[in-house]
Amino acid sequence: MSTVSDGVRAVVPTRWQRKTNGVLASVFERDKTLLALCLTPALALFILIALLPMVWAFNLSLYEVSTLSPIWEWTGPGRLVDIVTSSGFQIAFGRSLVFGFGSVAFQLIAGVGLALLVNKEFKGAVLARALALLPYLVPAVVIGMVGQFMLNAQYGIINLLLLRVGVLDNPVAFLGLPETAMVTVMIVGSWKFAVFVTLLTLARLQSIPEHFYEGATMCGANAYQKFRDITLPRIKNVILIAALLRTLWMFNKFDIIYIMTRGGPGESTTTIPLLAYEIAFNQYNLGEAAGIAALMFVFLAAWSVLYFRVAEPEQEVRVA
């Protein structure tokens, strides 16, 4: 025991110590009390920052509300049906699917590839792992703005390089053409988040015992066979969980698209979050925007349930 704690003990009356010990003992001995104590902070946060806004948005979606007026006029659930059947929503929904799933596919391929690469032992491997994770530290706003600058048709370095090496004859406005804007935003937006997949996969890869690979080598397995029979089964669940999380987050993505294209050119990158923003702040219709947000939540919740049912990422795969 240290001198300090002895000193403290000496000045605290014995009956206080007994009382405190009694209270703590009763809390830790009762499972329900302990559970409530541990869960309350997280639950309070969840209610305040997730549940309340959700309830609020659902409620708001049932009213006609101008962004610039506090008056709420009841319209009822028919509003949600109108939104779903409107061509603007359907087209934006299609774009969200393309952006969401396309981005996740890119992130999985790049993220897993990078994890496999930096998992190898070589000189400077630790530094390489640290460097590979750096993009995750860069804010999306910075990535969007720098990306926009680099891709500029007039002075962007990407065009300059491609012209210099002869890949292009004329500068291309990657973010200004409907054929290239979506793919470009997907790639720029995914570069950072691929590292999230790398993080999860790398952690799992490093837990695979080395003797698995040594045994496989002794049995004559080649690199592909080792990947197929040892690595993939062990990282499959991590990939599935990463895919689910990334799909939810990318479907909701607003910042990178808004910064890089504001939904353009035309409306070719106007996904659901941007449509909701446009309706709220350019068309001043907060009720309809809330309806779109509520429908987006319903879709993502349904997608998550379906995903867990079909892919069962929570099941641990055991390989003999």
Partner: peptide, 8 residues
Amino acid sequence: SPTATNWD
């Protein structure tokens, strides 16, 4: 003009 389909 340069491609100005997303210009502000």
